[in-house]
């Protein structure tokens, strides 16, 4: 194969692989923000919990950190989700009965604390140096089959999460969720235990985020505290969901792939543009321009099109036809 074409193909595969993992994150956030109205500002934390759990459980034994348990991928993924779920439950216990802002503050706090822990507990996490040599499914296969196979794993996981979330959305549970989000008072009056539903939404969302984190650890084969940088892991996911259309699972996926493509493309285009207008340090500075522009894009959508590209569609309820 022509090497240039081959390069493009690998780039395309990696774009889809990472985009797919972001789509899973966006679906997780959609349960929280889209359907339940909860603002989780610490996506990075739960994503990181997933990544580190997977890293510790699946690597070979190593002197620099605990674990090295060589567990099967499926076991580590499930454990990652459980750990994130338990932590989410504890955070939810404290914050979910308070106004939404408190959850935002507490979750960004959790993300920061998590970063402190991975930086300081060197015995467990190897500190700032991170954990390397994390295995990846199918890495033994020849290139590019191994890449395609891992992409397959990501897309299958995405499809599975999407399928489950669609079932949930159309179920009575999903309808109660949106009812609570839209009018808490009347949902309470109808005898719904608002706090329990919120807790379920919050915990499920965080578990999905941890799953994405586990996938990312395997994909990168390496995690360090930078993996949970609050910018990429938290902010971009919000931009993806708001632009794609919150409370719409298809919108979450569309937004994730769209924004990730834009973000990756701008990584190539932006430095050249800055260089062309004669800016020094174009490579470094372009990163800030990109962040600013993606922030601006979010603001424009919040003001002009808060519903996003694919607005929420209500599932047709069997009861509705009668009334």
């Amino acid at each position: 194969m022509d090497p240039v074409l081959y390069g493009y193909m690998l780039y395309g595969i990696s774009l889809l692989t990472v985009g797919g993992m972001y789509a899973i994150l966006a679906l997780g956030l959609n349960v929280q923000w889209g359907f339940t109205g909860l603002f989780n500002a610490g996506i990075a934390g739960f994503f990181g919990i997933g990544a580190y759990t997977a890293a510790i459980l699946t690597t070979n034994p190593h002197a620099s950190h605990v674990g090295g348990l060589q567990m099967p991928y499926i076991v580590s993924a499930i454990t990652a989700m459980l750990v994130a779920g338990i932590i989410a439950f504890l955070v939810g216990k404290v914050c979910l009965k308070l106004r939404s802002d408190y959850l935002a503050i507490a979750t960004i706090g959790i993300a920061e604390i998590f970063r402190l822990i991975v930086n300081n507990e060197t015995w467990a996490t190897n500190g700032p140096r991170g954990i390397s040599q994390i295995p990846r499914p199918f890495e033994g296969l020849p290139e590019p089959i191994n890449q395609v196979a891992f992409l397959g794993v990501v897309l299958l996981t995405l499809a599975g999460v999407y399928w489950l979330m669609e079932i949930a959305r159309k179920s009575p549970w999903g309808r109660v969720m949106t009812a609570i989000r839209d009018n808490e008072t009347s949902a309470k009056a109808a005898g719904k235990n608002v706090e329990t539903f919120r807790m379920e939404g919050f915990v499920i969302g965080c578990m999905i985020m941890a799953l994405a984190g586990a996938l990312m650890a395997h994909y990168l084969k390496f995690v360090n505290p930078q993996t949970t940088d609050p910018l990429l892991a938290t902010f971009i996911v919000f931009v993806m969901l708001v632009i794609g259309g919150s409370a719409n699972n298809k919108g979450a996926i569309l937004g994730a792939f769209l924004v990730w493509t834009l973000w990756s493309a701008s990584e190539i285009v932006a430095p050249r543009l800055l260089e062309a207008i004669g800016m020094t340090d174009a490579g470094i500075r372009s990163a800030y321009v990109r962040i600013f522009l993606i922030g601006l894009l979010l603001q424009i959508f919040l003001q002009k099109n808060p519903q996003g590209l694919l607005p929420e569609t209500r599932p047709s309820s069997p009861g509705k036809n009668g009334s």
Binding site: F39, A41, V239, I291, L302
Partner: peptide, 20 residues
């Protein structure tokens, strides 16, 4: 808008101001 939209906007502005 609902309060939480303002929180998201401020979260976005946090990164925008920082990037500037």
């Amino acid at each position: 808008s609902p309060v939480i939209i303002l929180v998201i906007a401020s979260f976005g502005l946090m990164l925008m101001i920082r990037s500037v």
